[in-house]
Design a protein around this nucleic acid. Structure first.
Lengths: 194, 194
DNA sequence: CGACTAAGTCAACAGGTGTTGATTTATTTC
DNA sequence: GAAATAAATCAACACCTGTTGACTTAGTCG
């Protein structure tokens, strides 16, 4: 009986993508310092050395992860301030829409590794440029930056409690999901008008 | 010329306290995985081995840190729901009161290490028992838990943005600190009534 | 086919991690 | 003062970390 050997075609871009995907999943669940390159390499079924080769090192890999995927360009969409609360509420509550969920993942990755010295610097830049900037610009006014920070605080806080601290106080499981969304819409609106 | 030698008295409880204090400061600024026991030992001017001896290991030390200090018993004080928004706003904005600042430090420590596998478990327990429990009990009602989670989300979010992501959008430096506090009071009140 | 290049493998490195045992030193007790 | 006990030190341990260089293999082009 011959043993079946899986021969993987030699495809640089494919393995690069595999590494990137595996790293995304790992960084989504653990912090930068907790994740080892050998863990990622194992998931991607790839030799460890290839990571340092393709991405220049762990830091480069992390940078590639947070820049590559659907980055949190949530606030780059042409959206008026009026519909912002409802949009954000949907973003927080909604569970079905895969696209929105993908976008929230980037927030989780950022939250998880924000306290690591190396990853933190990368993340801080990303927050200022790609999130806080567009959001405060959208809101506008002299209090735009303040209110943008407030909105982002709520967003981050919900993310922290839910996915990192595993608090299930929001419980969008029941059919009262619409009610939950309405509550968040109200809260976001308050943050804008306070 | 005789070299001055500092002879440290052999005091178990004193060195234990020194280790605890050094660990507190380190965990306040970096994540559980980033901080090394040798860093802490160096700060406390103590041999590394003593840490594992006194606290049973790194995990035990971290547990001692988050349990020992002025734990976030913020919500254990007999406080009515009515004055809760103003109190939380003061907690967020106030910079002078050293006591409140000390209490917020525990939140930062929790946020920093929440994503580390080992420290995360310890923190999650702490959040549920010492923070979320009393807070939702204070608020009461069938929506108490939901609203408690909302309040804590804002609190956590502000902490994340400020001390970890280093976003200075709130800027309580100017004399408009009172205005800033009022904004937060309004936001917390909205979270309670939404 | 043969040469060339790109892709992947292997092993080892240098440095850091938390932890433990044996040892020495100081302090207290008889 | 001598014995006993607690406190602190030292050195080493396995283990894991990211990274690098040399090597082997697969795919391609002439």
């Amino acid at each position: 009986m011959e043993r079946e050997i899986i021969v993987k075609k030699r495809d640089a871009v494919a393995t690069r993508a595999a590494i990137l995907a595996a790293a995304h999943q790992r960084f989504l669940r653990e912090s930068y310092d907790s994740v080892g390159l050998r863990d990622i390499a194992g998931d991607a079924r790839v030799d460890v050395a290839l990571i340092s080769r393709y991405f220049g090192g762990k830091e480069g890999l992390f940078r590639a992860v947070v820049r590559h995927d659907d980055k949190p360009d949530i606030f780059r969409e042409p959206k008026s301030v009026d519909e912002l609360p409802a949009f954000l509420a949907q973003l927080v509550v909604e569970d079905a829409d895969e696209d929105l969920e993908k976008r929230m993942e980037m927030f989780v990755i950022m939250l998880r590794s924000a306290s690591s010295p190396k990853a933190g610097a990368i993340i801080r830049d990303l927050v200022h440029l790609d999130v806080l900037g567009p959001l405060s610009e959208l809101i506008g006014g002299d209090q735009g930056e303040f209110r943008a920070t407030m909105l982002l605080s709520i967003l981050m806080g919900v993310g922290v409690l839910r996915t990192i601290m595993m608090v299930d106080g929001f419980a969008p499981t029941d059919d009262d999901m619409a009610e939950c969304a309405e509550r968040f819409r109200c809260l976001f609106a308050a943050a804008l008008t306070c």
